[in-house]
Design a protein around this nucleic acid. Structure first.
Lengths: 341, 341
DNA sequence: CTGAAAGCGCTAACAA
DNA sequence: TTGTTAGCGCTTTCAG
């Protein structure tokens, strides 16, 4: 079938070893180099990765272990990792744990048995059992999206706190005092951080933090809808809302429409992530942007370095800055009074 | 490091070959079986897939080659394929061609060089070059979502024509005569089929087919928004619209809201796919449902059979039936007149 | 710089 | 049934 290194050796009149050396970048006499290159050309020789892997115990594959493929963050992550690593000869395996800690651990084990060369983990379980398992196996690991307590590792995250702190500050600077937040699950790392940023901003400005202005939308569209409904029906509804992810933002937007509220006159809105909805609606929505592609790329690059054996600065934590886009979806709450007069 | 089959042989006092046979399901004397099982247990032996692969030239990996990870159809596909194939020991590789035919071909070549055991293809290029390449290499292949002309292969598709035909019939039966459709790209297989179904339904009922009632939204949220805007601003706007995918449906829904039109009084709406939006809005939206999970599972099962060497009924085409959900997002156009009187 | 040879972990053909 | 042995395609000593 396919030509082997042996065929190349035969055709070029050299030995197996010499050809192998050439292929692996070791110096070879100029004339021989040409001979080998010609043979490879003629035979259409392609090195067999399986055999190579058996010798070097590597598989030229990396895995992305993640909670759910339905999340935009996860797919965007995979996409940039694949773009970077495939040209380097790596295959990207996707492994979904379906928001189940036991399955996450089991799949981590599976991947280690399959001897993947590296793992990029978007953790579900925050106790860090998966991390221990992988680290005990000495497989290069990059953790993305969360910091897992007591489990140091190379980590890529967003500055989640700033991602909400800045927008809330912005709302306050416009004169808002009744600012609500729609958060993800209370036990979720990013959700917590984004809530922290919200509270920090209010506290800094000596504004009270009201329980009823903090609604959990579980990072889902349905949850965002329900949360917005509750906020709007409060006796003293907020004049501005920050929403901690895109899915909830869609839900909240639909809720606002159904209630016939106007953005920004009735309610100022700042959401999360730069996805289709925010730009097509009128007015376009303000949002904090998580540079997911860049984060994926950073993760892939760091993993690549680790797989090559470069352990410098381990464990390294890279914190990406959010970007902010402010549009006519926010305005001073006074505007409304003016309109009414 | 990890125990090898050799260690198991030593520990159980048997030969390499015997242990190998046991592992591969060949008969072994009962007492020896116990010996081997115990040794495996004690040594925590796990077969090395790389070595196995080198012998059998297989990699225990399958690839999903697809246009874009941002499509819900694609991720849902991957998800069900992974669920079925991972427990069987296969790893699922994802490979994105970014809507680029040349890249699709190049990545197909990469996957073949990496000797994946099978490929599930959601085609981008409809000329079928990728298919030829893969078939010439004798790698098991399942094509999903499209039928590529002159390139017979195992194929899993939705009955796309029926997915639009039935809803349009339904609208006609309610009394609508001004029915529009928002389609994907004109050269796209599923888009074309769904358009066919629309036209067939109208034709059967002797209703005219108007060019201006057929708007292309390119399967994107933005496109759906624009298309709906155009339809609404027509001198004689449609009383009902069928939308051929979910992303465009979100866009169209936002457009309808921005125009202050009411569903279903001003416009009856039937969309596509069972995703969050359709159920949270008020009224919930009617839609054709593509059973993506089931299609993914069917694809994975068929691929598995092919990889095991079962070639029965090749090439097999499996056509999945759409499901229909009708809600209060549609009503008779007469209702509107009544309201106005 | 080159060639010969050993061996990565496993399977399969063959002989016993 | 079981054990022996020859490789799958490649890398890497080690002599030359």
């Amino acid at each position: 079938m396919a030509a082997t290194i042996r065929d190349v050796a035969k055709k070029s009149g050299l030995s197996l070893g010499t050809v192998s050396k050439y292929i692996n970048g070791h110096p070879v006499k100029e004339t021989n180099r040409l001979l080998i290159e010609q043979a490879i050309q003629e035979l259409q020789y392609k090195p067999n990765n399986i055999a190579k892997g058996l010798r070097n115990s590597q598989t030229f594959s990396v895995a992305v272990l993640l909670p759910m493929l339905t999340s935009n963050f996860c797919t965007s992550m995979i996409s940039s990792i694949e773009s970077y690593l495939l040209p380097k000869g790596y295959t990207v395996i996707v492994c979904e744990c379906h928001n189940d800690a036991a399955m996450e651990l089991q799949k981590a084990r599976f991947l280690l048995d399959r001897m993947v060369d590296g793992i990029i983990l978007i953790p579900y379980d925050s106790t860090g059992k998966q991390i221990e398992l992988i680290q005990n196996n000495h497989t290069p690991l990059i953790v993305v999206d969360q910091i897992i307590k007591d489990h140091p590792s190379d980590t890529i995250i967003l500055d989640n706190q700033r991602a909400s702190y800045e927008p809330v500050k912005k709302l306050i600077s416009l004169g808002h005092t009744k600012i609500a937040i729609i958060t993800g699950g209370i036990d979720h790392y990013t959700s917590q951080q984004r809530l922290n940023g919200y509270e920090k901003a209010l506290r800094e400005c000596h504004l009270p933090i009201y329980k009823h202005y903090i609604q959990c939308g579980n990072y889902s569209t349905e949850g965002g809808y329900e949360a917005m409904m509750k906020l709007a029906k409060l006796p003293d509804p907020p004049t501005a809302v920050f929403i901690s992810n895109y899915d909830m933002e869609i839900g909240a937007y639909i809720a606002i429409n159904n209630l016939n509220l106007k953005i920004p006159e009735d309610i100022s809105l700042i959401g999360f992530d730069n996805l289709p909805l925010v730009n097509i609606v009128n007015p376009p929505l303000s949002f904090s942007e998580q540079p997911t592609d860049e984060m994926g790329l950073t993760a892939a690059k760091l993993l690549y370095r680790r797989m090559l054996g470069d352990q410098s600065d381990y464990p390294k934590t890279l914190i990406h800055a959010p970007l902010f886009h402010y549009t006519d979806s926010i305005c001073s709450p006074l505007d409304k009074e003016r309109v009414r007069l």
